[in-house]
């Protein structure tokens, strides 16, 4: 009578799902359980539907669900493997696995490349770099003259674009970050090595003692 629509059913993970996720990742079963506690917290912060919406990720990182941020959009898109506008728990684990301190460097290099390849052409293009530099300048309320901005981008491409075709391919990117490992600092989250201590409440629901 009132246009009743049932609420979407929350996905409840069975112990076998958590075990499988542990096998597919660098996390133990207890760590997957602790990550599930984090996921539940994030996915219920605005809409309690067992899925992380972009606004919920934004709320967690910026303490506000309002506004837009180019970089957060890219992070969200890479977490959202199914490209359906929400992050499911499995996608959350897959992405955070790359940020694990013990994840292979190759995975971090690849993830960072995909972050910066805004148009997903398989290259980091000069226009994309310029767009990201302008976005970070706006985000941090820094002012740079156009000349200095162009100079910074020129220098970056002088260093990174080995074949001088005006775009950075994956091999060039890999060589560039190996010379500048600081560029991957955001690709490692030390918290993930001791995730069970951040979310000790997992012990109330645990299915196994690691």
């Amino acid at each position: 009578c009132f246009g009743y629509r049932p609420r979407p059913k929350k996905c409840i993970y069975e112990f076998t799902d958590l075990t499988r996720l542990a096998h597919e990742s660098r996390f133990s079963v207890n760590e997957i359980e602790a990550l599930y506690e984090l996921f539940k917290k994030l996915s219920s912060s605005i809409i309690d539907d067992g899925l992380i919406h972009k606004e919920e990720l934004q709320l967690a990182l910026f303490q506000t669900p309002i506004g837009s941020n180019l970089f957060l959009d890219r992070v969200f898109d890479l977490f959202d493997e199914k490209r359906n506008g929400v992050i499911e728990f499995e996608e959350f684990v897959h992405a955070l696995n790359v940020f694990h301190p013990c994840a292979p460097l190759e995975d971090k290099v690849d993830f960072a490349f995909r972050l910066y390849d805004l148009r997903q052409t398989g290259f980091i293009e000069r226009e994309e770099v310029k767009q990201m530099v302008i976005a970070i300048l706006m985000e941090s309320e820094m002012n740079l003259s156009d000349d200095l901005l162009e100079e910074i981008i020129d220098k970056t491409f002088d260093d990174a674009d080995a074949d001088k075709d005006g775009k950075i391919n994956k091999e060039e990117w890999k060589a560039f970050v190996l010379r500048n490992p600081n560029l991957l600092r955001n690709m490692t989250l030390p918290h993930l090595k001791c995730i069970t201590t951040f979310f000790p409440s997992f012990v109330y629901n645990t299915g196994v003692e690691d």
Binding site: F71, R74, V133, I136, L137, N180, L183, L189, H191
Partner: peptide, 24 residues
């Protein structure tokens, strides 16, 4: 010497996921 463009870009808060683990 000039900044590397990616040095600047990597400063974005949007790329810093450590905020996920912060207490409310």
């Amino acid at each position: 010497s000039l900044f590397n463009a990616f040095d600047l870009i990597s400063l974005s808060e949007g790329f810093d996921l450590s905020g996920l683990f912060e207490e409310d």
